[in-house]
Amino acid sequence: MSNPATINMAIADAYTTAEAIELVSRAGVKKGNMRLDKAFLSAVSAGCLLSFAAAASLSANTAPWFQANAPGLIRMISALIFPIGLVMIVLAGADLFTGTNLYTAVAVLHGRLSIWKMLVHWFICFWGNLAGSLFVTAIICGYGGIFDHSPYRDQAIATAIEKQVSPQFHQIFLRAVGCNWLVCLGCCLGMQGKELISKIAGIWWPTFASATLGLDHVVANMFFIPLGIWLQTPGLSVGMYIWKGIIPATLGNMVGGAVFCAGFYHWMFLSEEPENPR
């Protein structure tokens, strides 16, 4: 295998997996060393973009006949729309908490970034994503009245119940592990592409799989659950969301992204390479 630190620009179609993980490591160094104000604003942007995609996916899922007769089919159709969010975020260079679980973790494992800088970037991204998500939830969708009337209101409430009220703590945690495992894989595959269509395809399919399975993405849930609270979903409160939503989803996403994806690919392709500060 060639040294992944040497990127072969002559190959026209795509980078190898080893080369892509090297690029992920370099991206993690850049993200981890961003100015805090820029990191926060970038994260706010990512929260907004993912919320727009979540809203579009929720609208597509609003199909009462399909929900009653072909729930798997309408979930798949809705899931085909959801990856728009991650595509916009990656191509626009915005910072998503779940994505940085991959990028900065690989950079830390590669010896290029300190654990402290990684954790600071995670912290800034989390709160920036939350701010952006709440802005779209309250201002655009809430006061904008997008989900005020049936059947859209009914579907938004049903989604909040399905994602937050019904499942147990450990179920949300385990779903979140699987979710960010797939989402971060999408980031890796997107990094392999050398042109726009390849990047979009690489990002799309793992994210589609995650959404089809109904896995839990902490930032996407920053739209779905607060919208449910806004619409006065029975049995749903801010306290429940924090304890049984944010905490297990955040921890699960961190494990899925930093361990199952970053840890695995670093071990496979970068662990035997010398540390490189580039």
Rank of each mutant, 00 (worst) to 15 (best):
A53M: 01
I89V: 10
S78D: 07
V44E: 03
T100F: 13
L251Y: 05
T250E: 15
P206T: 04
L174N: 13
V29M: 07
C261L: 10
N8A: 11
H217L: 02
S114G: 09
C48L: 03
V106D: 06
G190H: 03
S78Q: 05
L41H: 10
P4Y: 05
P248I: 03
R175S: 12
F208K: 01
V108F: 01
L36W: 13
A63T: 04
A156K: 08
T212K: 02
Q164K: 10
A63F: 06
T212F: 11
S210G: 14
Y265L: 03
H170R: 14
P226D: 06
G144H: 08
A70P: 06
I115E: 13
G93I: 06
A220F: 02
A160S: 14
R153I: 10
A201F: 12
G245K: 02
A20C: 04
W116P: 11
V238D: 13
V108R: 08
N101K: 12
M240S: 12
P277A: 13
R278F: 14
Q232I: 10
V218D: 08
G235C: 02
I140C: 09
Y152I: 09
L96Y: 00
A56Y: 00
D216S: 05
P274G: 12
A63L: 07
V183H: 03
M1N: 06
L185Q: 06
R75P: 12
S150Q: 15
I115Q: 15
L50C: 02
F264A: 01
D13P: 09
I140E: 02
K117N: 11
L23T: 09
A160H: 11
N61P: 12
T6R: 15
A107T: 06
C125V: 09
G145N: 12
F123H: 08
C48V: 02
S45G: 10
H170F: 15
T16Y: 06
S78E: 05
I146V: 15
I172S: 11
L80R: 01
D216Y: 00
C125I: 04
P274E: 15
L86W: 00
V177G: 12
K199F: 03
F173I: 06
N69A: 06
S210I: 02
Y103W: 11
F52E: 00
Y15H: 09
V90H: 00
E272L: 14
L189E: 07
E275D: 14
S114A: 13
A39S: 08
N33R: 09
G193I: 03
G252V: 02
W127Y: 10
C261E: 07
Y103V: 07
V218M: 07
H170L: 15
A94I: 01
G257D: 01
A249W: 04
A156T: 09
S237L: 09
F264H: 05
R26C: 10
G47S: 03
G128N: 12
I246L: 11
L231I: 08
L80E: 06
Y265V: 02
F82Y: 04
C125N: 08
T104K: 04
L23S: 13
N129A: 05
V44F: 00
T212Q: 08
R35S: 15
E273S: 12
A43C: 09
W65L: 14
A39K: 03
L91A: 04
A5G: 14
G245P: 05
F269C: 13
L49E: 00
I140Q: 11
A54E: 01
M240E: 13
I7E: 07
C125H: 08
A209C: 08
L119S: 11
E195I: 14
G47M: 00
G142W: 11
V106F: 03
A56G: 05
I246D: 07
M240Q: 11
